[in-house]
């Protein structure tokens, strides 16, 4: 697995830059991962990242758009405003979780 250095921290990532070992994640690292996506993390971003972490602990999966809306109370428009283009995959990456995938 390739190693990469973000914010001075060396971590293992997959080919798309997602952490392969969540235990290497830290809030400091998240700032660096966000910067690489052109995002400066605010409290509004952190609310989403914290929801993903709490939900992953419960469901072993990154929440989808509907779950973000209904359970996390985060509207789709807000997700697009904070994490433009692919909000869920970007937020998952910054939160240190795998890219949402299908079975194949």
């Amino acid at each position: 697995m390739p190693d990469t250095t973000i914010n001075g921290i060396t971590v293992s990532v997959d080919a798309d830059g997602y952490l392969t070992d969540h235990s290497q994640w830290s809030r400091e690292l998240a700032e660096g991962l966000a910067a690489a996506e052109g995002i400066t993390l605010t409290d509004a971003h952190w609310k989403i990242l914290d929801f993903i972490a709490a939900d992953y602990a419960e469901k072993s999966a990154v929440p989808g758009m509907r779950r973000m809306n209904k359970v996390g109370g985060i509207p789709t428009k807000e997700l697009y405003a904070l994490f433009p283009d692919g909000p869920i995959k970007k937020a998952a990456k910054i939160a240190g979780f795998p890219k949402p995938t299908s079975c194949v």
């Binding site: 997959d14 798309d16 692919g86 890219k99 949402p100 194949v104």
Partner: peptide
């Protein structure tokens, strides 16, 4: 697709 590709798992 709402996902990032038609195939999403690296090996596949």
């Amino acid at each position: 697709t709402p996902l990032s590709g038609a195939f999403t798992k690296p090996v596949a």
